[in-house]
Amino acid sequence: MTESHVLEQIRRDTLFYDQSHGGVTFSGGEPLAQPEFLYRLLKVCKEHEIHTAVDTSGYAPQEYFQEIVNCTDLFLYDIKVASDEVHVRETGVSNRIILQNLKLLPPDKVIVRVPLIPGVNSSTEHLSELAKLISSYRVSQVTLLPYHRGGVEKAKRLFATESSVYTAPSPDIIQNALAILEDHGLNPQIGG
């Protein structure tokens, strides 16, 4: 697979992007797992005036990051939890690199995405901490992604295991989370 092959697929829908002011979103998995290829793709998209978004966990080596930032129009950037300890427990890695990378992004080019998972980051304490953290980066666009179990069947087929250990948040938990984020001057949306 070369970038010109991917570009050809992307360009098939340029009329739809024009109509809806949309563009291409590089998602995954983790697109930054292939930083060089991603970079080349972003560059050709820029040459063709196609709006680009990168949907990432932010866990990526810094050496490529700045160059990628320069040719990306929008980041969909996951911040899961403020506490590094919880982050390590739940994801297996520290959030230090993620937060360092976030510093490299112009705040108006970022939508922070927060998965809302009961028992992990849904408490008032966790969310306040998270909101403070996000505000400190001067990012105001936040999307709350309430955890859902829609992938359970797929996980079963892929891994032949019941991999989901979490439950979906109740409407009350979602409302509470929205309120906390708003209190910290953020502009949260649900889903997306």
């Binding site: 009329l15 739809f16 109509q19 809806s20 949309g22 997306g192």
Partner: peptide, 16 residues
């Protein structure tokens, strides 16, 4: 947003 996307889909089909 869903309605809006459908509207874009239709407008694009008609542009084509």
């Amino acid at each position: 947003a869903g309605i809006e996307k459908l509207a874009h889909l239709i407008r694009t089909y008609f542009a084509l």
